[in-house]
């Protein structure tokens, strides 16, 4: 009797299996046609960093305190700031992330005193050349603000006379302390440290 019972239970299991696959057949597909469409990353996805926008003016919140630059273990952040005309606070004028070196550790986001940088949702990050990995975060935000209809941002005073010039350690020529003045986070710089040539 046992082999016959086994035969029928085996036969039944075949039909059950076919039923399961048929049910899957009529369900909608779940494929994402990747190059044509891509997934939206969740809010807490930790992509490369990006500058946070001031929701009213569309300008970056960052005031170029350079703490993130110092916190970066692999020297991949390069930023410059300047005082805009008629403003007390400095604001960032250039923010470049060298993504070839970035390990997405998040130390910069952690250290930022006013949450001026955050993780982006970017993950399509394949490039054809090394230069393309120098992500111009400032320009990206500027373009984004412009396309969102914010007024054009004030231009920095003049090239070469920026308030605070900072470059990654690897790009520095002199001793590090000479080119990167230390600054208290969150407070405007004392006037004494400003360069001689003031913006007209």
């Amino acid at each position: 009797m046992k082999p016959i019972r086994e035969f029928f239970s085996g036969l039944k299991s075949l039909f059950i299996g076919m039923g399961i696959t048929l049910r899957q057949f009529f369900k909608p597909t779940i494929t994402l046609q990747y190059p044509h469409e891509s997934l939206k990353m969740p809010k807490r996805f930790r992509g490369h960093i990006e500058l946070v926008r001031d929701q009213e003016t569309g300008r970056p919140l960052c005031y170029a305190c350079t703490l993130c630059q110092k916190a970066c273990p692999s020297d991949c952040i390069m930023l410059e700031g300047a005082k805009m005309e008629g403003e007390k606070k400095k604001s960032v004028t250039k923010y470049v992330l060298d993504f070839t070196k970035c390990s997405l550790c998040g130390a910069c986001v952690e250290v930022c005193p006013d949450d001026c940088i955050q993780f982006s949702n970017q993950y399509n990050l394949a490039c054809l050349s090394k230069d393309e990995y120098l992500v111009e975060l400032f320009k990206m935000l500027e373009d984004e603000s412009r396309s969102d209809g914010f007024p054009p941002w004030p231009k920095p005073p003049a090239p070469g006379v920026a308030d605070n010039k900072a470059a990654p350690a690897s790009a520095r020529s002199g001793p590090p302390s000479a080119t990167t003045p230390v600054q208290n986070p969150g407070t405007p710089r004392p006037a004494t440290e400003k360069p001689e040539e003031k913006p007209s």
């Binding site: 899957q24 057949f25 369900k27 597909t29 779940i30 494929t31 046609q33």
Partner: peptide
């Protein structure tokens, strides 16, 4: 295409 649908993929498109 059948293989795709059974595995909830669209198959060749």
């Amino acid at each position: 295409n059948g293989a795709g649908r059974f595995q909830r993929r669209p198959g060749p498109t």
